[in-house]
Each structure stands twice: as structure tokens, then as C-alpha cells.
């Protein structure tokens, strides 16, 4: 019974980790810039939700999610258009990455200045305790909901990328930017749309993470590193890879927390590092 509960928790968390990884991979795959502010966007998404619920305690979860998505998407577009896009014009790719690092520092400290440095939880009323029973198996409603939303996001993203005109343009741009422009694709606009989508996904994951455990304005770094690990382990272009890597890391965290209560993300990072060493030894990973 305990085993199943543990597995289920790992699955939920893994779904969320996959989601934050996929947001980072999306922008990296298309823009060719590792957005070091991604962790901050996740955290800001969570705090937007905290703010909305404290203002309107009766706001339905769907609206909270939508609000956080839109807020972060707007922020993502603004950062892309005002700073990152300009930095991408320089030949050295390091410049754009350094710019996103600068933005991350600005966002993190702006968040601390505006909401204080304390841990915050997302007050979701009775939802946190509610449970549902399937044939003798009792599962928390909240983790079930979280998992559902994560899977929906994955599915929605896959549909968007593989079934729509926008997705076609995104894939064409990521394959061959120069030829894509020749096909009349508006590169800057697609970049901005991708930045919005990626930031929006970050916000959704941020809200769901905050419902699970409290967040602080300093959580961004941890979120960024997990997203990065998911991308490295799962591969950039692969939504399925991200989900798999997310599950591995989520399971690791849930299981390690059971044995060592205050380990934080230590074992998650260690698993990542060990895989890295193994890959280095066997010479894979180009």
C-alpha cells in the first residue's frame, strides 16, 4: 500500500518535472538559448497564483492556472523581445545566455523585494485533503489532479507542435532558421510565441508545485537545475524523453525523501551526476 502511494507520488512529481523540463527544452530547441531565467518564471508563476488566491479566495483553480499562464507568458514575451532577441543577434551564443542570467537575477530579487523572502504555500482549501478511492485504492485528489493537468499539458503541447500550422513553423525554424525565413515565416514573432509558451508552461508547473509544497522566492535555482537535468537526460527535441527523465528524477526525490527527510534535491542531483559520469565513461553524449 505504502509502495503504491510512493510510486504515485513519484509519478506526480515526475510529471511536473517533465513539464518544467519541456518548457526549457522548447525554448532551447527553437531559440538555441538556455533560458537561465526559466526557474524564476516557474517561481513567479507560483507567486502569481498565491497572490490571486489571497485576493480572491474563491477563484476556481482553472482561472488561477490561466492567470498564472498569461502573466508569465507576457513576462516571457517581454524578456524575449526587449533583451534576449537582441542578444541573439551577436555571433557569440554566450551573450544571450549571460543576458538570461542577468534577467534571472533581476527577477529573483524583484520577487524578494515585492513579496518578502518567506516560504509561501498555496491555500487550496479542502482540495489538499480530499481523497478518491478506486477499487480499494485510495489516492489523494490533489496529486491526481496535478498528474492530470501535467499530462494534459504534455498532450496539448504535442498537439500544438505536431498538428498545427504554428507547430510546423516552430519545427521548420528549429531545423533550418535561414530557409524557414525564406518560406515567409516571421522569425521574431515565432520566437516571441515560443518564449510565451515556454514561460506559460513554466507558470503552470510552478502553480502545481506550489500546491504540493511551499515555495520561496529563492526556489528558482532549484527549479532551473531540475529543468536542465530533465533536458540533458531526456534530450532536447523529445517530449517523451522529457517525460521519462522527469519521472526518473521525481521518483528519485520521492524515494530519497522517504529515507532521508532533509536531503532536499541532493539525491536528484546525484543521480543526474552519476548518469553523466557513466555517459562520460562510456563515451556517449557528444
Amino acid at each position: 500500500m505504502m509502495m503504491i502511494e510512493l510510486l504515485f507520488q513519484g509519478l506526480t512529481l515526475g510529471g511536473l518535472y517533465g513539464m518544467i523540463g519541456v518548457g526549457l527544452a522548447l525554448s532551447f530547441g527553437i531559440l538555441r538559448v538556455v533560458n537561465l531565467a526559466q526557474g524564476e518564471l516557474i517561481t513567479i508563476g507560483a507567486f502569481l497564483a498565491v497572490g490571486m488566491i489571497s485576493l480572491f479566495p474563491a477563484l476556481p483553480l482553472a482561472l488561477v492556472l490561466a492567470g498564472a499562464f498569461l502573466g508569465c507568458a507576457a513576462l516571457g514575451v517581454a524578456m524575449q523581445a526587449l533583451a534576449v532577441e537582441r542578444a541573439m543577434a551577436f555571433r557569440d551564443p554566450m551573450v544571450a545566455m549571460l543576458v538570461t542570467f542577468g534577467l534571472a537575477v533581476i527577477l529573483r530579487n524583484a520577487l524578494v523585494e515585492s513579496v518578502g523572502a518567506n516560504l509561501r504555500g498555496l491555500d487550496i482549501g479542502g482540495l489538499g485533503q480530499a481523497r478518491v478511492t478506486f477499487g480499494g485504492l485510495s489516492l489523494g485528489l490533489l496529486p491526481l489532479l496535478t498528474l492530470g493537468i501535467a499530462l494534459l499539458s504534455f498532450g496539448g503541447l504535442a498537439l500544438l507542435i505536431f498538428r498545427t500550422r504554428f507547430g510546423r513553423q516552430v519545427r521548420a525554424l528549429s531545423d533550418r532558421p535561414e530557409i524557414a525565413e525564406l518560406m515567409g515565416i516571421r522569425i521574431r514573432r515565432v520566437h516571441a510565441q515560443v518564449a510565451a509558451l515556454s514561460a506559460g508552461l513554466a507558470a503552470l508547473a510552478g502553480v502545481l508545485l506550489a500546491m504540493r509544497a511551499s515555495v520561496s522566492p529563492f526556489s528558482g535555482v532549484a527549479h532551473l537545475l531540475i529543468a536542465f537535468e530533465v533536458v540533458v537526460l531526456g534530450g532536447i527535441g523529445s517530449i517523451r524523453g522529457a517525460l521519462g527523465a522527469g519521472l526518473l528524477l521525481g521518483m528519485t526525490q520521492v524515494v530519497s525523501a522517504r529515507f532521508d527527510g532533509n536531503a532536499g534535491l541532493l539525491y536528484v542531483h546525484l543521480v543526474f551526476f552519476v548518469i553523466l559520469v557513466l555517459r562520460a565513461i562510456s563515451g556517449r553524449l557528444s
Binding site: 500550422r165 519545427r171 521548420a172 528549429s174 531545423d175 530557409i179 524557414a180 518560406m183 515567409g184
Partner: peptide, 17 residues
């Protein structure tokens, strides 16, 4: 210089203006 992440038909669709 075809788009390898797109199918044949999608390559044609992307070419439309």
C-alpha cells in the same frame, strides 16, 4: 535543405505563402 522534422506534406505546407 529540407526540413527533416516535418513530413513531406508539411514541407510543402510550410512552403505556401
Amino acid at each position: 535543405l529540407l526540413f527533416d522534422s516535418l513530413t513531406v506534406e508539411e514541407n510543402l505546407l510550410v512552403g505556401q505563402s
